[in-house]
Write a protein that binds this DNA or RNA. Structure first.
Lengths: 226, 226
DNA sequence: CGCCACAGACTTGTATGGTAGTGTCGACAA
DNA sequence: TTGTCGACACTACCATACAAGTCTGTGGCG
């Protein structure tokens, strides 16, 4: 209850550590290749080794870190190949979601989305990259929920995490972010119009756009890629 | 190396426990609603509570169990709604996979598949449900790998696990299993013919078929559903 | 007879000590 | 100089002990 300015104190220490480490990895405070250790993380966060261990195991499940038994744990490097596969899977799921959304879309979710887009547009104009990404996530969550398939979001979530890590390097400027917001609007317009093909195509372009800068980013930061 | 006849002794105790528990849950030896406990599992398998705990956490991530803090852990009941969503997501991913397979398909994987289907057909004729499912899994793995998207399988795997649990209740007879094998052949034929729409439609029907018995199964075993 | 309080036996969560395995670095011999 | 061997420091992994919360059953009271 005491105002958690930002560090949401989730239930268990393990979960808190997990979200905190995830944030740090996606935000590139922990750069790919960084060596971690249960003990160090535990000490640094003032908890025991057990929660730290469980957090690292969770992160290894979503391939944000790689734990090498009896050797150590490292932050996984960005893999172009895996990101291409990730985009492929995400495109398959999210285009299917928007297609379904054209048939039937939950009204509450539909209204929420308008608000999300508006707020996201403001953050985009302000160049607030982190808040922009937070509302981007809310948009895609509401899309899945509105289409009646929250499970789709659970599948997409981990994939999006990796894409977000790349986006941290892409350093979108305000116009680029505004363009992405406009793509969200295009998707929603197609859904409202009941145009499945148009919605799917808009989503496809949206996801393609996000990774377009990958070659440049890789050329500029080869040490972060594998 | 040394032939692991069946009880594949994976690396860590936690992982061994996880696969063993997963097998037991999918095989309905641990029925939905069963109460578990870290201590009991640890004792029963002759290890400490820690590996048992990690295994349960892993299973809770894929929603095979639900752990209620300070209260207990239960095997999740089968949810019709979630299974419908699961089919939706799986259909989205796997139809995309077969479409891509029509463009380019790895030759080694292609050859492996023929073998898988033949073996699976034999198990189907023999009415060996477990082995049938094992080769069904190998088929879908090879499909994803052959299409160059092993990540797609990782996404589908957990979903398929839940569908497999339902299939355990469906009690396919030999003709039904042979029909499913024939659907596999239809998918492959469409891929060989370079017919994306045909392949996708065949996959769609295949996945629809699997869940067709769900209403009957739910009516016969209401206590296993939520 | 019905209801409430309390005690005990559970549960998961956390902390800590000990173990086996791996890479590293330095001494030593060819 | 180079190749080899050995002690050491470090890791994740496992076992055990403790803490905190929840349900249950029971006994006393109204």
């Amino acid at each position: 209850m005491a105002g958690n300015g930002s560090g949401a104190t989730a239930g268990s220490a393990a979960q808190r550590l997990e979200t905190e480490l995830k944030r740090a990895i996606v935000g590139l405070e922990l750069r790919p290749g960084t060596r971690l250790s249960e003990s160090e993380i535990a000490d640094r966060h003032g908890v025991s080794r057990q929660p730290a261990r469980e957090a690292l195991i969770a992160l290894s499940r979503m391939r944000l870190v790689e734990v090498l038994p009896q050797r150590g744990t490292v932050v996984t490097k960005i893999s172009v190949g895996r990101l291409m596969q990730a985009r492929f899977v995400r495109e398959a799921v999210e285009t299917a979601v928007v297609r379904r959304a054209c048939d039937a879309f939950d009204r509450d979710a539909r209204e929420r989305i308008d608000g999300f887009i508006d707020v996201q547009e403001r953050f985009a104009s302000a160049g607030d990259h982190d808040s922009f990404q937070r509302y981007d996530e809310l948009f895609h969550i509401a899309l899945a929920e509105g289409a009646g398939c929250p499970l789709a979001w659970e599948v997409v979530r981990d994939i999006k995490t990796h894409m977000d890590r790349l986006c941290q390097l892409t350093l979108f400027d305000a116009p680029a972010m505004l363009a992405l917001v406009e793509q969200h609007r295009t998707i929603i317009r197609a859904i409202d119009a009941g145009d499945p093909d148009g919605a799917a195509e808009a989503m496809r372009q949206h996801l393609t756009e996000i990774l377009r800068a990958m070659p440049r980013v890789e050329a500029e930061n080869p040490e972060l890629f594998e």
